[in-house]
Design a protein around this nucleic acid. Structure first.
Length: 556
RNA sequence: GGGCGAGUGGCUUAGCCCGGACAUAGCGUCAGCCUCCUAAGCUGAAUGCCGGGGGUUCAAAUCCCCCCUCGCCCGCCA
């Protein structure tokens, strides 16, 4: 089934038998081979022989091994290279033309993945959607890898920020502007309210009172909070839909107050040896390397975010096998404290995927200060650009078709631009790069896919043939063969950019193939096998694009 | 001050966990390729003390130590 993974396992086993070493140092062979090992260096010390001789001896032995039939084994100096033969290549193509290629076997493991969870005090901006896109891509990869999955959005509906929004609606001119989107409206009121607070710090008292009222379940206050938060979420949902980001469930923070989970968790926390139940209830996690107190409950008796978050995670831990959160770098400390506390309680701690910040050329983004580029603005702008581009390239298409292509191209550009960078790297939002549709971009990969579709459409029916011949054909097939192992690697490392890099490399390889090998103009068996290969690459690109949340369009 | 993350050609970036064969690709620059399957494409060239300094090793972008720069965090905020 999984050709590459299977071959790798066989080689590992055989090498272990032959060398007696546990770690056989098998790695990707790059341009030299499909897989390679530097084990001769390690053996050189043991055997007191030159690595080159050891490599040669080992190759002589391995070449005869019955399990390695169809694998060419060769020594290049001290390096031992494994090159897979025709059988591997044709099996790979045979797999790759099937619908759903790249899917792994069902696992029977239930995973809950939380992502985005932005505070509902203003529209999603280009920093928030890094969270959404990393999270949504991971979700798609988990599904493809055969996991049962539920994706959740945790709605912070009772924080100080929301209290400030509610205060603004109560006390300021808060009518929406004509055509104003809900979340943008809320941001405007939130920004104005913050300006008032800066002028008159006494307003903070009124905000505190609102927070107490909502925690105690005061009906009119609860209703007001819920109304504004819901309106903001309605705005988010439009943005997320435009980004092809899907949540299965929105979980409200305040529910964990109402259903008693927070009280229950506080009672359990109080019994921990690390608990410091004084004015406030806090945990001293100093023995685990945390320098600050982990506050659970305020002196006025209200809970803080951490308490509700612990209740939420306890609930998730009870209902799922794996709990994964996608969080910004600003949450690193509190997430580590949460993980530590969950372990103290004997609960399953969440796995956390952190991503570093997105800033603007002029500095950090801030909803409160109104300094941000909203995702909606980015989407509008990129669709405009994409529409102009499609109109230039395909003037013969009708407007509806061009609009539809532009929408898909814009989505691809945004998602790919964000997901292609490793989450550990902080980035600076750059309009020029975001609006680029060339090379290392989503549209570039879509284009390769559309090109394959176009060839297949013109070809009509043909007989599938898996006996590849030229170097270009084999190189492409081997790239296609890697796809399932890429899915597996993303799961192992929780790094979706690996899939982005792979997809781009597959498009590169196909474009090179396309340049050097004629498909439609070739004849007979050559035509059949190249068309089969085009079908395989089209299907693999389609699966890869869809796993990236990008439309695999057939014309553009 | 302490913790976490990052530093790779002019710019962006892969590789780092698991050390090995000339460090990945793009943008930009330069030279080419549309009577030929979609040029959102392809081919080639130039550009790297892989932040700096020590160390480990037969071998270091990769591991260890120190330092520098940038980002994030260290609240009875979320």
């Amino acid at each position: 089934m999984l050709m590459l993974l299977e071959k790798r396992a066989i080689l590992e086993r055989v090498l272990r038998q032959s060398t007696g070493l546990e770690d056989v140092l098998l790695s990707e062979g790059g341009e030299h081979a499909d897989l390679a090992t530097t084990i001769a260096f390690t053996l050189a010390k043991q055997k007191k022989q030159a690595p080159v001789k050891i490599a040669q001896d080992l190759v002589d032995e391995l070449t005869k091994h019955p399990d390695l039939k169809g694998i060419q084994v060769e020594a290049k100096g001290p390096y031992i290279n494994f090159i897979f033969g025709a059988e591997y290549v044709s099996e790979a193509v045979k797999e790759a033309v099937k619908p759903g290629y790249g899917s792994l076997t069902k696992k029977g493991i239930r995973v809950v993945l939380e992502h985005t969870s932005a505070n509902p005090n203003g529209p999603l901006h280009v920093g928030h959607i890094r969270n959404s896109i990393i999270g949504d891509t991971l979700a798609r990869v988990f599904r493809k890898a055969g996991y049962g999955l539920e994706v959740q959005y945790y709605v912070n509906d009772m924080g100080r920020q929301i209290a400030i929004v509610v205060w603004g609606f109560d006390n300021l001119d808060s009518n929406p502007l004509a055509g104003e989107k809900e979340d943008a409206h809320i941001a405007r009121v939130y920004i104005a309210a913050n300006q008032e607070i800066e002028k008159d710090p006494d307003i903070t008292q009124q905000v505190n009172i609102l927070m107490q009222l909502v925690e105690n379940g005061d009906p009119p206050t609860v209703k007001k909070f819920r109304r504004e938060v819901s309106r903001c979420l309605d705005g988010f949902k439009v943005t997320l839909k435009d980004l092809n980001v899907v949540h299965d469930r929105f979980v409200w923070e305040s529910d964990f107050i109402r259903n008693g989970y927070t009280d229950r968790i506080i009672a359990r926390l109080r019994k921990l040896p690390q608990a410091r139940d004084e004015e406030t209830l806090a945990l001293d996690l100093g023995e685990f390397g945390f320098g600050n107190k982990y506050v659970i409950r305020r002196s006025d008796g209200t809970s803080v975010y951490a308490a509700r978050d612990l209740a939420f995670h306890t609930w998730k831990a009870a209902n799922f096998d794996r709990v994964i959160d996608v969080l910004g770098a600003d949450h690193k400390l509190i997430a580590a404290q949460l993980q530590c506390t969950m372990k103290l309680l004997g609960e399953k701690a969440p796995e956390i995927v952190h991503f570093e910040f997105v800033s603007l050329p002029e500095g950090s983004m801030s909803t409160r200060a109104g300094k941000f580029v909203s995702a909606d603005d980015l989407i509008t702008e990129i669709r405009k650009r994409a529409f102009d581009e499609v109109t230039t390239r395909r003037p013969e298409l009708d407007e509806e078709t061009r609009k539809s292509i532009a929408k898909s191209v814009g989505l691809a550009a945004i998602r790919y631009d964000i997901v292609k960078v490793t989450p550990e790297k902080s980035t600076v939002f750059d309009w020029k790069e975001a609006l680029d549709f060339e090379r290392q971009s989503g549209p570039y990969i879509q284009y390769a896919h559309a090109r394959a579709c176009s060839i297949l459409e013109k070809a009509g029916t043909f007989t599938e043939c898996y006996d590849l011949e030229s170097d270009q054909e084999i190189a492409l097939a081997k790239q296609i063969a890697k796809f399932p192992s890429v899915i597996e690697k993303v799961i192992a490392e929780l790094h979706p950019h690996i899939l982005a890099t792979y997809s781009r490399e597959l498009a590169d390889t196909f474009n090179t193939f396309y340049h050097f090998e004629q498909v439609l103009r070739s004849e007979g068996k050559t035509r059949d096998r190249r068309l089969t290969l085009v079908r395989a690459v089209q299907n693999t690109l389609k699966e890869a694009l869809e796993t990236l949340g990008i439309d695999a369009i057939s014309t553009m």
